[in-house]
Design a protein around this nucleic acid. Structure first.
Length: 873
DNA sequence: GAGTATACTTAGGATGTCGATG
DNA sequence: CATCGACATCCTAAGTATACTC
């Protein structure tokens, strides 16, 4: 009976549940919390002692899985009232009062324990064990050291592609693979690549040799296309034997990685304490990193500034910069900023030849480093460029944002390739850190980065077979989940009421992951931005509202705000209330007994390959297909169908909470409008005061005149008035200049500087007046002002304010819609929606593929394009 | 078994490109 | 024909998941 392998899932599940539940009841909890107490206190604040009694206030028997376990398609979508966009303002609604918390005591429900007689300890173990032993994934884990399989032919001089092209079993176009070999693209990989090698140091030479660049470029393109055609691996048409998929390649040949060129000093001097400083090139480089970012959000961020300055001043000191740079406030990077602006300008104005030369150079690089041979087949390399030095741009409130990211040296880089592959030459005067031959890894190169000590890799491009295969696998796993998701849902709905806290938490977490497409929520370190996922949700991220509303508000991956409200199952509501009650403090974890590893272990036991993120993939793809079915007008035009497609896509993007900061231009526009409104309000305020100055008695009659305008702050007013005056002055100067020009033409005597001063005096006077008005609130207004006139003007202003507001709202609404169409959609399209759904849809509804997939996406998804119109996820 | 390291996917912002528009 | 904005692509940070280590 114990062998659960081939038992229907539902039953297996039952068994597990039973196993867990039999036996002594309340002690379950003891055991549970007992284990908790082993964990260091520091980590978990909750007192381990407190015996957990499960609350079920309203008591249990009533549980019906029926509706809640219904497949997603059936369920009504969580009613999401979500404030759509990333809003800074937040503060908002954290601690809603309504929440239970105190309604505490009531519930030590004895009744619950009904079937509580299995000794937990006894039962629990086998289950856990079984999942690790029994499941087949333990099998392959023998290989400690990478095994490299020798190719039969040992002649390493032969281009590898040739060798294996003969051996590869299925060819899309079997016959002609040989022809390619005569073409000149190969040699770069073998040995004769001197042209490029020299490029690392001196790049220009090559360009000269290029003949007419235009036709050349065209020719290259053509060649490329042809080459592509000839080599189609079409792994997706191959029989899928149960290969050992831990081995990723038989042969791997590549040209190493490209290092950014050494720093070339520009000699532009930043200022310190108002004076230009001479910097050593190394120091200048870092100053320039900051200079280039001036006026961006990063450079304005105090943490960024501090981190940058710490590294920068240290470096400056090391190079004995005079004067010593000790204060960020005294640094003036604007000359550097301007320098880069100029450079940009120059770049824009480059001649056609220059531009083409650059292009050619880039292409040469791509041809050399951008390709590799995997099992003899040509494949694209993704990020062959070693990340250049710069300032670390950590997102959100990353504590290390702004730190100096150092230049990577070849000595730090490890290459991974075939044993008999030629080892690419390291840059002049350098050596590679290490060479390995690990065929269980897909990376070509790796190094450690200094800021976070994280490992970086060079992988194949998204369109490569390796990536395609794993993509395929990902979606197949999701489809696997589709088959058993109903059972899994049923199971976790049952578990929601389990007596053991741990199980309850796990079930509740699963519910959220499934319904809200939350990420797993691994633990994070202190040196990272404070963001969370499901398992790391904390007290303050969750609020409950009777009868069954759950508000979530937290920062997720990339510090993107997740803010949704949904109706949840009654039991989930109760559980969360219970979880919240115990920790009861900000900073405490909601699921204090749950770790992602445990969650995933459990998921594995439900279905091979199941992890938290599979739910995201599954729900995304499923929702998409579902929506597409509903929305596509069979007889519509292509445009209408596309609209449906995008709507379905948007639905998924919303589900996955994919969003992006509003574009800069947009934000700027908004700012302008907001300022415009403020300016209007300012005028209104002035008018009010004028009225009161004219007719002080009205204070009582019309108290609204005393009310300050919303959104109008002293600081802003001061600045605004200063701006007004500045504009005035400029106007006068302009007038003055014009006048003088005129006089010059007419040979008259020009106005003197004195006269200009005289003219400007008026402004000065006005400025003083304004300041006084600001203080006293007494505003005489313009000549002939009457209460009636002011009132009339005020009405007009109100109209204008209203009008401006609506344009803003329009714009915001519009832009959000637009924005969604663009960015938010792409992430789900690229990562979550099974491309076969799209391919089938195009087939079925006769929509050209290029309408929905760009060239790169078609490349990435070529494995999915062979399905027919009836294919289903 | 917790903590750490590794390897790989997912993600939004930055940058580049290209077509519409004034 | 310059500018601008939409969109594609590039870049690399930030996750997940699991293997490894002590």
């Amino acid at each position: 009976m114990s062998d659960s392998e081939d038992m229907p899932l539902a039953e297996r599940k039952k068994q597990i549940i039973n196993n867990n539940n039999n036996h002594h009841s309340t002690d379950d909890d003891n055991i549970d919390s007992g284990s908790d107490s082993d964990t260091p206190l520091g980590k978990r604040k909750r007192p381990p002692v407190r015996k957990k009694v499960i609350d079920d206030d309203d008591d249990d028997g009533d549980y019906q899985s029926s509706d809640s376990a219904a497949p997603l398609s059936k369920r009504t979508r969580p009613d999401i009232k979500r404030s759509s966009y990333k809003e800074e303002s937040d503060d908002a609604s954290y601690g809603s009062p309504s929440v239970s918390k105190k309604s505490s005591s009531s519930l030590s429900d004895a009744g619950e324990s009904s079937d509580s007689d299995t000794p937990l300890a006894a039962k629990k173990k086998p289950v856990a064990k079984a999942s690790t032993n029994g499941s087949s994934n333990g099998t392959a884990r023998v290989k400690k050291e990478p095994k490299y399989k020798e190719e039969s032919s040992s002649d390493s001089d032969v281009p590898l592609s040739k060798k294996s092209s003969t051996s590869s079993k299925t060819k899309a176009k079997p016959s002609k693979s040989i022809k390619v070999k005569e073409e000149p693209e190969e040699p770069t990989l073998g040995k004769s690549k001197s042209a490029i090698d020299s490029k690392q140091t001196s790049s220009k030479k090559r360009i000269k040799d290029e003949p007419d660049s235009k036709s050349n470029a065209k020719r290259i393109k053509k060649e490329e296309e042809e080459a592509d055609e000839e080599e189609e691996h079409a792994w997706w048409l191959q029989e899928r034997e149960n290969e050992d998929d831990s081995v990723k390649w038989k042969t791997l040949v590549h040209n190493g990685v490209y290092f950014p060129p050494p720093y070339v000093p520009h000699g532009v001097k930043m200022k310190y304490d108002g004076k230009p400083v001479t910097l050593a090139p190394e120091v200048e480089e870092v100053a320039s990193f900051f200079g280039a970012l001036l006026y961006t959000e990063h450079a304005e961020n105090p943490v960024f500034q501090q981190n940058f300055f710490k590294d920068f001043s240290k470096l400056a000191k090391k190079h004995k910069t005079v004067p010593e740079i000790t204060s960020f406030g005294k640094c003036d990077f604007t000359p550097l900023y301007e320098h880069f602006q100029n450079e940009k300008e120059k770049k824009k104005n480059m001649t056609k030849e220059e531009k083409n030369a650059q292009k050619a150079e880039k292409q040469a690089l791509e041809e050399h480093y951008g390709v590799c041979y995997l099992d003899g087949r040509k494949e694209k390399v993704g990020n062959f460029r070693i990340e250049p030095p710069g300032l670390f741009r950590g997102r959100g409130k990353h504590p290390k944002t702004g730190c100096l990211k150092l230049r990577v040296m070849p000595e730090q880089v490890t290459l991974n390739l075939s044993k008999d592959a030629p080892i690419p030459k390291a840059p002049e005067g350098h050596k590679w850190g290490k060479i390995v031959h690990d065929d269980t890894k897909t990376w070509l190169a790796t190094w450690k980065e200094n800021v976070n000590d994280s490992t970086k890799y060079v992988f194949l491009a998204a369109g490569s077979s390796l990536k395609g295969q794993s993509d395929f696998k990902k979606f197949e796993t999701a489809r696997e989940l589709k088959k058993c998701v109903a059972d899994i849902r049923k199971a976790y709905m049952t578990d929601l009421k389990d007596k053991k806290m741990f199980i309850r938490q796990r079930a509740t977490a699963m519910y959220l992951i499934d319904r809200l497409a939350l990420r797993a929520g691994n633990e994070k370190g202190e040196d990272e931005a404070d963001t969370v996922g499901c398992c790391s949700l904390r007290y303050e991220h969750v609020t409950l509202e009777k009868p069954n509303l759950l508000h979530l508000d937290f920062l997720g991956k990339d510090s993107i705000r997740f803010q949704k409200t949904m109706e949840v199952d009654e039991q989930v509501f109760k559980n969360i209330r219970l979880f919240k009650r115990e920790p009861a403090q900000e900073g405490d974890e909601l699921f204090d007994r749950l770790k992602t590893s445990e969650l995933n272990k459990h998921l594995q036991s439900l279905m091979k390959g199941l992890t938290a993120k599979v739910f995201r993939t599954y729900n995304a793809s499923f929702t998409f297909q579902d929506q597409l079915k509903k929305l596509t007008p069979a007889n519509g035009t292509v445009a209408e169908k596309l609209l449906a497609y995008n709507r379905a896509n948007r639905e998924v993007a919303v589900l996955c909470n994919h969003q992006r900061a509003v574009s800069k231009g947009h934000a700027l526009q908004m700012d302008k409008i907001v300022d415009k409104i403020r300016a209007l309000k300012y005028q209104k305020m002035k008018l009010k005061r004028t009225i009161l100055t004219l007719e002080p008695k009205l204070k009582k009659k019309r108290p609204e005149l005393l009310e300050p305008e919303s959104d109008l702050e002293e600081d802003w007013i001061i600045e605004y008035e200063a701006q007004l005056m500045e504009k005035e002055r400029e106007k006068i100067k302009l007038k003055f200049d014009k006048e003088n020009e005129k006089r010059k033409e007419n040979k008259e005597k020009p106005l003197s500087a004195k006269e200009l001063k005289e003219m400007l005096k008026e402004v000065d006077a006005r400025e003083k007046e304004l300041a006084k008005e600001r203080k006293t609130g007494v505003v005489p207004g313009s000549k002939g002002a009457t209460v009636e006139k002011c009132d009339a003007q005020m009405l007009k202003l109100d109209d204008r304010i209203a009008a401006t507001r609506t344009t803003m709202v329009d714009k915001v609404g519009f832009c959000i819609a637009e924005e969604n169409k663009q960015t938010a959609l792409s992430t789900s399209k690229i990562n979550y929606i099974d491309p076969r759904i799209s391919a089938a849809w195009c087939q079925k509804y006769d929509v050209p593929l290029e309408k929905i997939f760009t060239k790169t996406l078609r490349e990435k998804f070529k494995w999915a394009m062979t399905v027919d119109g009836n294919w289903e996820f």
